[in-house]
């Protein structure tokens, strides 16, 4: 009789333990999927930006004849960012995209000197698209980093850290784009 109660109690403890482990495991999987999903959101927006840039450059070129340097910088930064997107890690992509943001910001600042271009309907539409895409990148980055933070906390904290270790859950990288636009504020020179 006593033996049976002992076995039953042990069985209940084991079942409760298994349920807890399953719960934590499922939570980790859900978080990992969320991180993946929010990364794909960023990816969509980054690709969208890459697609927009050739159009923008083409439209602007017609008006800005003397800004070849700026165009080259943007185009180069774009191809670098695309390469990083195909092969690189989250950190590499972040660095390449930051460069692209910087050179784009520089281009848009130069546009200020060309009132005809600023009045061009086609360009205005492109600019709105680009602004919106930049915003979407920023907002999806925010959402992604929130999710990464949650996943990393779970992977590091006890008791979920044990299960994360058993099933090879890894910490994800934050997506950092260093804000180069601010550093690129117009430099005034009196030469």
């Amino acid at each position: 009789m006593n033996g049976m109660i002992f076995v039953l109690g042990l069985l209940i403890i084991v079942i409760v333990f298994v349920i807890i482990v399953i719960g934590i495991y499922n939570g980790l999987v859900a978080l990992r999927n969320r991180v993946k999903n929010s990364w794909s959101q960023i990816d969509v927006q980054l690709k969208r930006r890459h697609d927009l840039i050739p159009n923008l450059v083409e439209t602007a070129k017609g008006f800005m004849k003397h800004e070849n340097e700026t165009f080259v910088a943007v185009t180069e930064a774009r191809s670098k960012a695309m390469n990083a997107g195909n092969s690189g890690s989250v950190k590499d992509i972040g660095a390449a995209e930051a460069d692209l943001s910087g050179s784009l910001a520089k281009l848009l600042l130069t546009v200020e000197n060309y009132p005809e271009l600023k009045a061009n309907q086609n360009f205005l539409a492109l600019q709105e698209e680009l602004t919106s895409t930049e915003n979407k990148i920023a907002f999806s980055r925010q959402a992604y980093n929130d999710d990464v933070m949650m996943l990393n906390n779970k992977v590091e904290m006890f008791p979920s850290s044990i299960i994360a270790g058993m099933f090879n859950f890894e910490k994800a990288d934050f997506f950092e784009i260093e804000d180069k636009a601010e550093k690129l504020a117009p430099k005034v020179s009196f030469n």
Binding site: Q41, Q45, E128, E129, S132, N135, F139, S140, A143
Partner: peptide
């Protein structure tokens, strides 16, 4: 309404 659409989409993304 491209701009309005973009803004709503931005907020949708921000709110995931």
């Amino acid at each position: 309404y491209p701009q309005l659409h973009n803004i709503v989409e931005e907020m949708k993304i921000a709110a995931s």
